[in-house]
Design a protein around this nucleic acid. Structure first.
Lengths: 138, 138
DNA sequence: TGGTAAATGCAAGTGAGTTGCAAATGTGGT
DNA sequence: ACCACATTTGCAACTCACTTGCATTTACCA
């Protein structure tokens, strides 16, 4: 079974602070990965004053605990999404407008085993993003 | 057939400058994707004085022409490798020492078609990197 | 060889992300 | 409920990859 968010924090010796609750709430409200600035803007809109640096520190920490997922489209900044029981998945981003869509698939399980055999690395993660043009920008 | 590097530059209205030749030479010497700073260091070592900003501008241009390939491991900087007739491939990086290895495979051709059908995007690229621990760091 | 667009170097700027430190705040034990 | 204490937060300053503006230089073509 999966640990609850609170249990995961406790298991990592972390406190359940106001900032942390608010950050997770903003992420939960967004289905797609958002930037640190967008998380911060969400906090401001929810009248929760949390410094930007606190957002950075918490996202890094939540990522280490496996509670959030970092996604990068080589935009010069990272994006984050909650894990929270969602299935492992990937994304596609439009090169025109930047729109992101979830792709509920991953073809890499078998391949990972093959890579482990061939390289002698122990593989513990991968980044897979697609790029293209959405119907509106095409 | 594939255009030569010189032909590709000409086709794009680009000049074959000393800086450009030297940058491509440094990339050709390196089998794996290297950072902009590493390209620049390679130029200095080869006694070719090219400003760092020129390296940035040329790598961006060479990427647009499809002559070099940008690879990102979410390290806060990009890496570049020459395309030059090499087969499409991906990489794995060690989380311990940062070592990178070529993976001469790509499982995404069929999947790309499927994504195009499902999302109505026209897919024109993808980023796929693996992460893990190499035998020395494990 | 000379005219011209493209390319370069330098300096200054942008913006994401980090670090140090003093003040504030959860938490677990009593 | 309170206290002790480690964790967390905010602020300010900083780092570093990358970009931009502009005057000078260079490759190319007639």
């Amino acid at each position: 079974m999966e640990l609850s968010i609170i249990d995961s924090l406790k298991a990592g010796g972390k406190k359940l602070t106001k900032a942390r609750k608010a950050i997770l709430a903003v992420l939960e409200k967004n289905a797609l990965p958002i930037t640190v600035a967008e998380v911060h803007a969400g906090l401001v809109k929810a009248r929760t004053n949390v410094d930007l640096v606190t957002v950075y520190r918490n996202l890094a920490m939540l990522q280490e605990l496996g509670l959030v997922n970092a996604v990068g489209f080589h935009e010069g900044q990272m994006r984050y999404e909650v894990v929270h029981g969602r299935a492992h998945h990937h994304h596609i981003q439009c090169r025109g407008c930047g729109k992101i869509i979830d792709l509920m698939l991953c073809p890499l399980k078998k391949l990972t085993k093959l890579i482990e055999e061939q390289t002698r690395f122990s593989v513990d993660g991968h980044a897979l993003e697609f790029f293209g043009w959405c119907p509106q920008c095409r």
